[in-house]
Nucleic acid binder design. Structure first.
Ligand SMILES: [Mn+2]
Ligand SMILES: [Mn+2]
Ligand SMILES: [Zn+2]
Ligand SMILES: [Zn+2]
Lengths: 148, 148
DNA sequence: CTAGTGATGAAAACCATTTCCATCTAGCGT
DNA sequence: ACGCTAGATGGAAATGGTTTTCATCACTAG
């Protein structure tokens, strides 16, 4: 009930090499957060929750997860990297509230096609793209003040 | 003929506060580069060219130019910020070659509209976005080897 | 010309991320 | 089970871009 649960995360973690205790913990925490988190914040949370994980391992694991396509990444305005678990097979783009930080995945097939077309038109190949949306969500817009 | 030219950059630099020698120099260098440059690289170039400008001033000026809408910015995969002079009134998006670094502005009105629509649909306001494309340009694709 | 406020820049501080490296450990052969 | 070994871990130190500090400088109003 505390931290002796070895069956934490599914076999997904095996895609990264050896399925270690720490990797399972990190993936589990990433899934549980259900929103973008920085390596630092995730580390703080895990430590606060009593887990023993090094910051280096968090960075290594998150980077590996992103490379393996199991996580989406994004950079905030200060250049800090944030990670979010990717449930499906293909990448997603998000719209994030600049006030409360909440983010929601958006339908992006239109930009996906646009990006490809632009590449073809310009004579470029192996096109890849970055698309990030930010705004103020309904909760934070109301005169009732930003949600806690 | 060396660096005594005070009429370097236009009055645009006045939009940033006092029209100083350094600000003119930085803006001029940014315009001349005609492509994205990092603060560090721009600084190195200016120093190599015999100008006396501090790195801090480069950062301050580039940041100010970006805030004033006179420059577009972009972050490379390592998180480093790059700046490019913005000739027109509205921002642009670029397609950059991952091999030689050259970048070309692309027509993005389609994504601009897409971003707005997504915002409206999601109940978000004050939408802003980030769109970056990378790929391999024609010059770098050919069997003739990447351009120097 | 002079005062006053903004600008400069060298050096130090910041801070997210990476690298080192000595110590563990999962997984395998025996 | 037992020991081996390549891979993994994590605390600490190194990196490296960017920001801050602060003493000195230089536009510009008067
Ligand atoms: Mn996409
Ligand atoms: Mn745009
Ligand atoms: Zn919000
Ligand atoms: Zn190229």
């Amino acid at each position: 009930m505390t931290s002796t649960d070895t069956t934490s995360a599914p076999g997904e973690v095996a895609l990264l090499g050896r399925p270690t205790q720490q990797r399972a913990t990190v993936l589990r925490a990433l899934i549980d957060s259900e929103d973008f988190v920085s390596a630092q914040v995730l580390h703080a949370r895990l430590i606060a929750a009593g887990n023993r994980v090094g910051l280096s391992t968090i960075y290594r694991t998150l980077t590996a997860l992103a490379e393996a396509g199991l996580a989406d990444t994004m950079r905030d305005s200060e250049g800090e990297r944030h990670f979010r678990h990717r449930p499906g097979p293909d990448h997603r783009h998000y719209l994030r509230c600049r006030t409360c930080g909440r983010s929601v995945a958006v339908d992006s097939h239109l930009v996906e096609r646009w990006a490809e077309r632009i590449g073809a038109t310009s004579g470029f190949t192996e096109i890849s793209h970055t698309v990030e949306l930010t705004g103020i969500c309904a909760d934070c817009t109301g005169p009732t003040a930003p949600a806690a």
